[in-house]
Simulated assay, not measured.
Amino acid sequence: MSGKPRLTYLNGRGRMEPIRWLLAAAGVEFEEVFLQTKEQYDKLIKDGVLLFQQVPLVEIDGMKMVQTRAILSYIAGKYNLYGKDLKERALIDMYVEGISDLMQMILMFPFSPPDAKEKNLDSIKERATNRYFPVFEKVLKDHGQDFLVGNRLSRADVQLLDIILMAEEFKPDILAKFPLLQSFKARISNIPAIKKFLQPGSQRKPPTPEEDIPKVLAIFY
């Protein structure tokens, strides 16, 4: 195994996508192993590789890490994306938890029953525009800096950009009422490591196609 972190998951977004984003923002190259069959997944469990019988799995610094939040916290701390002190870390965690709530809705949308899709789509748009994005617009206004916490890039900025771009896939003008978030999006997108990750051919994953849902379910259930 090389010195690069190795990520084991599906060849899709899911809970691994914010991990890919954070590593890319830190300028860290990583390898990926894609689960394609239930047998592959069951073997990881049988071999005791998955501590809670769950992926994402990230092999980094001699550890086999599971649990998305723990993985993100480790990467953020290792690569100086977690604030300068305990107070900044608390703010970053608070913002990230809010982002994660909205992200969970978006990630689960492709798995919605057909008769619930329209309702769930409306709920995503409503929550984004009335609950979550107004908070971050206010944070940027009150803080008066280019970033959400302190005056340097943190995991909160990276994960906010990720969720903005996901939300725009549902509603391209979703930031119409949020001028500071529009500027934030442009600014963070132009950070060299992030700009590179946004280019075609990167390890960033597209939305999950509807026809892939049965394949995903077949691996885990």
Rank of each mutant, 00 (worst) to 15 (best):
L161D: 07
I19E: 05
G98F: 07
D93A: 05
P18Q: 03
F184V: 04
Y95D: 03
E210M: 09
P113C: 06
M65L: 15
L198Q: 04
L165D: 13
Y132F: 06
L7G: 03
I164Y: 00
L86M: 09
V55C: 12
M103F: 06
I124D: 03
L22Y: 11
S183P: 09
R127C: 11
S112Q: 13
K125M: 08
P209M: 10
D212Y: 01
M63V: 14
E118T: 15
Y82E: 00
Q159K: 13
I45W: 09
D157Y: 06
E210P: 02
M65Q: 08
D61M: 12
K78W: 02
L35T: 05
E88Y: 02
P206G: 12
Y74D: 07
Q54G: 01
E97M: 07
F30D: 07
K195R: 12
S189V: 03
R204E: 02
E59G: 02
D101R: 09
A128E: 06
I219L: 04
I99A: 13
A76Y: 00
G150Q: 11
K171C: 07
M65V: 10
E118H: 08
A26V: 01
D85A: 10
L148E: 08
P209Y: 08
N151Y: 10
P114C: 12
F184K: 05
I106G: 14
D47G: 10
F178T: 06
G3W: 07
K171A: 12
Q54Y: 12
F52A: 01
V158P: 10
E17M: 06
A116E: 15
E211T: 03
L107K: 00
I191Y: 12
A156T: 10
L160Q: 09
Y74T: 12
K141N: 12
K119N: 10
N11K: 15
D61W: 04
E39S: 14
F147Q: 09
T129I: 10
R131Q: 14
A156S: 14
Q159I: 09
A26G: 06
K205C: 00
R131N: 10
I71D: 03
K205F: 04
I163Q: 13
G14Y: 02
A76E: 01
I191H: 06
F147P: 06
P114K: 15
M166E: 15
A70F: 09
I164N: 05
V49K: 15
V55K: 04
K141D: 08
R20V: 00
E29A: 15
M94H: 09
F147A: 05
P56K: 05
S189R: 04
E32M: 03
A76D: 00
N120L: 14
Y82A: 02
S189C: 08
K38V: 05
R20A: 08
E211W: 02
L23S: 00
N80W: 01
D212K: 11
I219G: 00
A186V: 15
E88Q: 06
L107P: 01
G48H: 07
E39P: 13
M108G: 14
A116Q: 15
L181I: 13
